[in-house]
Design a protein around this nucleic acid. Structure first.
Lengths: 256, 256
DNA sequence: TAGTGGTCTAGACCACATC
DNA sequence: ATGTGGTCTAGACCACTAA
C-alpha cells in the first residue's frame, strides 16, 4: 500500500543517496548469518516468516534472498526451504580449486585426489603474507603445507597461511584426521566461513625444493596460484600459494 | 519450447517437465538477438511493448531480461532503455583478457597496451583447432598472430584461429587499421558476436621462436592460455592460444 | 495434507533521462 | 511532461517435499 519508507529504521538522515528496501533486508540477513543466528547447513526462516519479521512483503524478501543465493551465501531448495551454504557435507570437495585432468571425459571436478599433509607450524608472518592478510608486522600465523596427488603422483603443492589467533587449536593431527574439505574443518572448528576468493596466476620455474616435492625437474614450468580468501565483510582470512604441475592437468576458467 | 536449461534430465524419455513462461520469453528474445532483429548497441523495445507482443505481464518480461542481462547479452540503463550488448564502442578494450600489471595501483584493466599484428593467413585447420572449432578435417581456417605490448615490451603472444567461411574478407590490413577491440571488428564486419568463453591455463616453457617474439630466454616459463569463444547457441567460433609473460603481470581471477 | 519455494499477474509509485 | 527501467506490494496459483 502507500507506505513511504516503513519500518526498517535508519531513515531520517542525510540521504545516503537511497537504498532499496531489499538491499537493506539483504544487509540484515547477512548480519544474522555473520552473527551465527543461523549456522551453516541449517535452514533459515521461510520467506513468509522473514517478511513478517522485517515488515515487508514476501516479494521483497524474495529478491534479497535471490541475490544472496546468487552470491552463494544461501542455497534454495524448492519445497524444503532456504539453507545456509556450507563447505562441509558438500558434494564438491574442493570449493575453489579450478584444476582439472586434461582428458577427464568423465568428471569435470578433481574428485579422486588424495592429500598428503606435510607440515603445520606457527611462525611470524612473512611480509607478503602479513600484507595480504592485513596483519600487523610481527603477528603470528599458521602455515600449512600439503600435497595433492592424482593417481599417486603429486600435482599440487599448497602453502597456506592463516591468522594464528583465529585458528588457535589447529594442528597437523586435526588436519590429517578430518574427513572432507579443509574449509569444512575451518567452518566447524573455528567458525570461519570462506565466501569469496581472488587468485593471481603466474608461470614460474620450479626451485629445487619444489621440484623434488612435485617430482618434476628443477626449473620445470609450474603454475603459481596465489589465492586470497575472504569471509563476510570482505575480510581476508586465508592466503595460499599453490604450485600446480600442469603437464596432465589444466586450470579451467569460464569467462562471461 | 520445453527443455532449455534446468536439470540433468537427459532421459531419452519424454521430459515435458514444464518450462516457466519467462524462460520461454528468454528464448524468444534470444532468437531475435541472434536473428539480428535488434543489432548490437541498439535499444530493444521497452518492457511494456515486449509484454504486449508476447502477451504476458511486464513482470514476466522483466525476469527474462534480468537473466539475459546477467548473462551480458543485454544491458539495462535506467531511464533510457535496454540495449543489446556490444564489443564495439565499449569502455573495456579487452573483453576477456584477465591479465593485469602487478603493481598497477592505477587501473585494474590492461588499458594502455599496444598491439602489433604479425600475420594473417588462410590454411587448413590443424587437428587441434579443427576439433575445438568443430570443423571437418581439411576445412579452411584463418590464422592471426599478434603481440600485445606494455610500455614497449612484449607481454602477450596470441595465435588466433577462425573458421574461414565466416570471416571471408578478413585481412591483415583490416586488422591493422581497425580502431578498437578485435571483437568489435568481428561484430561489425562479420556479424559474429562472442558471448562466452572457456579457458584452459597451463605453465609451459618458451620455445626458441616464442622466446624471441616475447623477448625472453628460451625455456622461460610462460602462461599458456587456450581460449575457446562461443556465439549464440554455444557454437564455438574462435580458438585462441595466448602466451603470457608473467614476470611483471599476472592473470587475475575471482572465485565465488 | 500442509508447508516451502517458484511463477505470474496487476497496479502503484519511485528514480533517472530526455525533451 | 513523458517514457524508461527499478522497487514494492498483494494475491493467486503451481511444483516440490515430507509427514
Amino acid at each position: 500500500m502507500p507506505d513511504p519508507v516503513p519500518s526498517p529504521a535508519e531513515a531520517a538522515e542525510a540521504t545516503p543517496s537511497f537504498s532499496p528496501l531489499y538491499q537493506q533486508i539483504k544487509v540484515l540477513i547477512t548480519r544474522s548469518l555473520q552473527g551465527g543466528e543461523w549456522k551453516p547447513g541449517e535452514a533459515i526462516p521461510s520467506e513468509i516468516e522473514l517478511a513478517a519479521r522485517f515488515k515487508v512483503s514476501q516479494g521483497t524478501v524474495r529478491k534479497a534472498i535471490d541475490e544472496l543465493s546468487a552470491e552463494n551465501l544461501l542455497v534454495r531448495r524448492q519445497g524444503k526451504g532456504t539453507f545456509v551454504a556450507t563447505h562441509a557435507e558438500q558434494n564438491v570437495q574442493y570449493r575453489f580449486l579450478r584444476l582439472q585432468p586434461d582428458s577427464g571425459g568423465a568428471s569435470n571436478t578433481p574428485a579422486g585426489m588424495q592429500r598428503r599433509l606435510l607440515d603445520c607450524r606457527r611462525m611470524r608472518a612473512p611480509a607478503e603474507v602479513s600484507r595480504a592478510l592485513d596483519l600487523k608486522t610481527g603477528d603470528s600465523a599458521v602455515q600449512v603445507r600439503r600435497l595433492l596427488l592424482a593417481a599417486g603422483t603429486p600435482v599440487v603443492l599448497d602453502d597456506i597461511w592463516l591468522p594464528a589467533p583465529q585458528f588457535k587449536g589447529l594442528t597437523l593431527d586435526k588436519l590429517v584426521s578430518y574427513r572432507g574439505p579443509m574449509y569444512g574443518l575451518f567452518e566447524r572448528e573455528f567458525g570461519v566461513r570462506m565466501i569469496r576468493a581472488e587468485e593471481k596466476i603466474r608461470a614460474v620455474a620450479a626451485t629445487n625444493e619444489e621440484a623434488e616435492l612435485l617430482a618434476v625437474s628443477p626449473g620445470a614450468p609450474l603454475l603459481s596460484v596465489e589465492r586470497l580468501a575472504f569471509t563476510y565483510d570482505d575480510k581476508p582470512v586465508e592466503f595460499r600459494r599453490g604450485l600446480y604441475d600442469t603437464t596432465r592437468h589444466h586450470y579451467r576458467n569460464v569467462l562471461s
